[in-house]
Amino acid sequence: MTPVLEARDLAKTYDTGGAKVFALRGIDLSIESGEFVAITGPSGCGKSTLLNLLAGLDRPTSGQVWLDGERIDQLSETELARLRRRKVGFVFQFFNLMPTLSAAENVELPLLLVGRGRKEARRSASTLMSDLGIGDKQDAAPAQLSGGEQQRVALARALANSPDIVLGDEPTGNLDSVAAREVLTLLRAARDRGQTLLLVTHDARVAAAADRVINLRDGLVSDQTELQPARPVAFPFDGDSG
């Protein structure tokens, strides 16, 4: 089985004039179709950098990125944009919503870009937004929304096309536990439909929902954990009978 997404010895160095920042220092990663993978690690360890490279939003200093058996790190911007529209949904850490469009229009955009009709796009957007508990915010401008609401709009936009791969950078980072659970439910449903999920998260509950948790440290993979299906929970009522 070919992995749907692969990083080979991936490195990224930021050169800002002053000292160089070695954000990624040789990452090997292989994600199978339908897998739900979480990436965790301390702030600054390179999670967003990795996700951006995997999505073709930025280019590596060295190493390769393979998407669906195709090497993408050397493609042109146009080719990358086309590939992303077809295959990838991306939830940015800081949302990146179009400020001049309404919430619903933001969600419809990826659908319109692949040639869906306006009515159909509107319907899909509406359903998704309701599922995420922001059905009443469709006409609001992004600036009128709370952080958590913007985050859910960004998620709806990423899921709109039912992309093969959903990449999320802290998709529950601004949510309270109730909203986080709604988001998680939706993401699980996406996975159950066979979509591949790769989520950067600080939220242990999101990580625990994944099939595999990859821990990054200083630009390297420091640990990988395969989680088992949930085990039955025994409720030991503290055994002290004395």
Binding site: A204, R205, A207, A208, A209, V213, N215, D223, T225, L227, Q228, A230, R231, P232, V233
Partner: peptide
Amino acid sequence: IERQRREYLQSLRDLDAV
């Protein structure tokens, strides 16, 4: 630490399933 982290994550998964 890694082994303990695994156990905690797995326990979290178990409880979330409940």
